[in-house]
Design a protein around this nucleic acid. Structure first.
Length: 574
RNA sequence: GCCCCCGUAGCUCAGAGGAUAGAGCGAUGGUUUCCUAAACCAUAGGCCGUGGGUUCGAAUCCCUCCGGGGGUACCA
């Protein structure tokens, strides 16, 4: 789809390229308050030619204006302070946006299939521990990226890569053999495993020999001893059940669940092959892949001196399997916290040496900590994801009871779910992912201002208008006439809707859900102002009523689907 | 020690080289016989951490320092 603003942009870009050559000044949006649609700065060119930028802009604007035809979307060019401002024919632009939204319907803003696959690694927890708020970011950032990239026309495969291998599971198996209780495990598998985990580490402080017990037990698991294997598989299965239940509340469903343990053998084969090729080498008893020239930066350790593999090599084997299995893969995306920077830098370099440069994209995000300090399950310094979601739903239900006491109980539960969980997701995704977050209930459960409920509320208001207008669901308003859009609030709203495709595009290019969130907040703000100033159902004249109705319908669609891209559901009523 | 990230209003954050730095929360004041007030409007609040540099132009790019966070080969 080539949307109307894209068409204008491309036209202006071509003019700028023809006029100025390289380097072409960047076509940009003028500051707020300007009626212009785009602006081309002339300063750089003026500098190189030694002319006054104001005068240059005047000349260029005049020249470009001569080339305009009456049919075009662009109406005029005006020079202003060294910029050439581009003004669209407002009627044609508004009509074009409404037309785009109407003809594309529920596909408005999306892009056709590009024939490229991206693989997104997200959530990826350790088994045998419940998900905490620490897993929230990877899960919802990953899911939002999956949705946004799909909207941009990529084929996307989401993988939850479970950590189920390593000595820590030997420790847990040992703990279960020592202190585990079958009944407790059956009743609450993950809860019991968590208790055992905490208990083990408490005992470990008193009795350091437990470290060896864990290692020995893990060796048994590695060697395939039936007893350990059966138990470990149960841990794994129960963990996955628990994870899927929890992330299901966030509307997340994994395309694939991959297990790290399954890459143990593949990692060994890979390392052998890389040794033969000279990409891997022996060093200090271990096998490494040299990644950076810088002596201070450690290489990727592929095999420990005791002959076993590590997370790094299993991850590498898994990356190669992803490339092979989902071919042709244009990107391997990892939604993982910034603390694993070095790991992914090494992984990217290793992939490059193997012959896959520029494929790995570490979509990193800042740490979540608690006001008391870094999250630590061992120390009991943790907020679990289910706790957070429960509280979010509870708080939302409370507000609904207050604001809308007549709502039926089952409706209220559903609305509370969408509003509460939406708030949690939005609180995270509305912010640049690189920043650290200190967990704060008030912040996560904000229901006013720049928050999910604000956006949901705007969409619900639209839906209500459409419903009251007696519009059959699934049908688009016919007979809109952009000439009937006169009020500044209406025009502002249409213009906001016109930017939807670009907002999705930028969010996809920068792997930045917050770009989309910020855009949707703008749309909701425009809608709110429109709503208070312009009456739809009581509009004077049928043509005006229909046009406003069409606008409201397009707005509802953009808000609802935009929120859906972020992983947030819009309730039917609020 | 070395490497990476962050520092913008009282608080939480947008702003990815361009025109007068913007929101939300909090504060103060206003708006409900009219499609839902989870809303709208107004006011107050800024040496964009510091000092230098690059540039026609810097919150944005580079360097110094300060403050905070993370990482630093055989954990995941």
């Amino acid at each position: 789809m080539n949307y109307v603003l894209d068409r204008i942009y491309q036209q202006v870009e071509k003019l700028a390229t023809d006029e100025f050559g390289e380097p072409t000044p960047e076509v940009r949006r003028p500051p707020k308050g300007s009626q212009a649609i785009y602006a081309v700065p002339c300063f750089q060119y003026a500098k190189t030619k030694g002319v006054n930028p104001m005068q240059l802009a005047e000349r260029v604007a005049a020249r470009w204006s001569k080339g305009l035809t009456d049919e075009g979307l662009i109406e005029r060019f005006e020079a202003a302070r060294g910029y050439v401002n581009v003004f669209a024919n407002q009627q044609k632009l508004l009509a074009g946006i409404l037309q785009d939204a109407e003809s594309a319907g529920e596909c408005y803003g999306t892009h056709a299939d590009r024939g490229q696959t991206v693989v997104v690694d997200y959530c990826s927890p350790n088994i045998a521990k419940p998900l905490s708020v620490g897993h929230l970011r990877s899960t919802i950032i990953g899911q939002a990226l999956i949705n946004i990239l799909r909207a941009r026309g990529y084929k996307v495969v989401g993988i939850n890569f479970l950590s189920d291998w390593g000595t820590q599971f030997g420790k847990l198996l040992y703990a279960f053999e020592q202190w585990g209780e079958e009944e407790k495990f059956t009743a609450d598998p993950i809860g019991h495993l968590l208790d055992l985990y905490v208990h083990f580490h408490k005992e470990l402080k008193e009795n350091p020999t437990l470290e060896d017990k864990g290692r020995t037990t893990f060796r048994k698991l590695e060697q395939g001893e039936a007893k350990e294997r059966v138990l470990w598989k149960r841990f794994r299965e129960e963990s996955l059940n628990s994870f899927e239940k929890t992330v299901g509340r966030l509307g997340v469903h994994f395309d694939h669940n991959w297990y790290e343990s399954e890459f143990e053998k593949k990692a060994h084969d890979l390392i052998d092959s890389l040794l033969e090729q000279g990409i891997a080498e022996h060093s200090e008893g271990a096998v490494i892949i040299r990644t950076f020239e810088d002596e201070n930066k450690p290489p990727l350790v592929a095999r420990k001196s005791d002959g076993t593999t590590l997370y790094a090599s299993r991850d590498l084997a898994s990356a190669l399997e992803r490339i092979e299995k989902f071919s042709p893969v244009s990107k391997l995306i990892y939604a993982v916290a910034t603390e694993q920077n070095l790991h992914f830098a090494n992984l990217a370099k290793a992939l490059e040496r193997i012959g896959f440069p520029d494929v790995l994209e570490h979509v990193r995000f800042g740490m979540v900590s608690l006001p008391e300090g870094k999250i630590s399950t061992r120390e009991g310094r943790v907020v679990y994801l289910d706790e957070l979601l429960d509280e979010a739903e509870r708080r939302a239900a409370e507000i609904i009871t207050e604001k809308n006491p007549d709502m039926a109980a089952d409706t209220r539960a559903e609305v509370a779910r969408r509003v509460g969980i939406g708030s949690v997701i939005y609180a995270d995704l509305s912010q640049d992912r690189i920043k650290d977050i200190v967990f704060d209930w008030k912040r996560m459960l904000a229901f006013e201002g720049n928050s999910a409920p604000y956006l949901q509320y705007a969409a619900v208001r639209c839906a209500r208008i459409l419903q009251k207008a007696g519009l059959p669901t699934g049908e688009w308003v016919q007979g809109t006439d952009s000439a009937k859009l006169e009020e500044p609030e209406s025009i502002e709203l249409v213009m906001a809707l016109g930017r939807f495709p670009q907002a999705i595009a930028e969010a996809a290019e920068r792997y930045a859900p917050h770009v989309l969130a910020g855009y949707l907040y703008d749309v909701a703000g425009s809608l709110s102002r429109f709503y208070t100033q312009v009456s739809v159902l009581k509009a004077a004249g049928e043509a005006t009523r229909l046009t406003r109705l069409g606008l409201v319908q397009a707005t509802e669609s953009v808000l609802r689907r935009g929120l859906a891209l972020l992983g947030i559901q819009t309730p039917e009523v609020m």
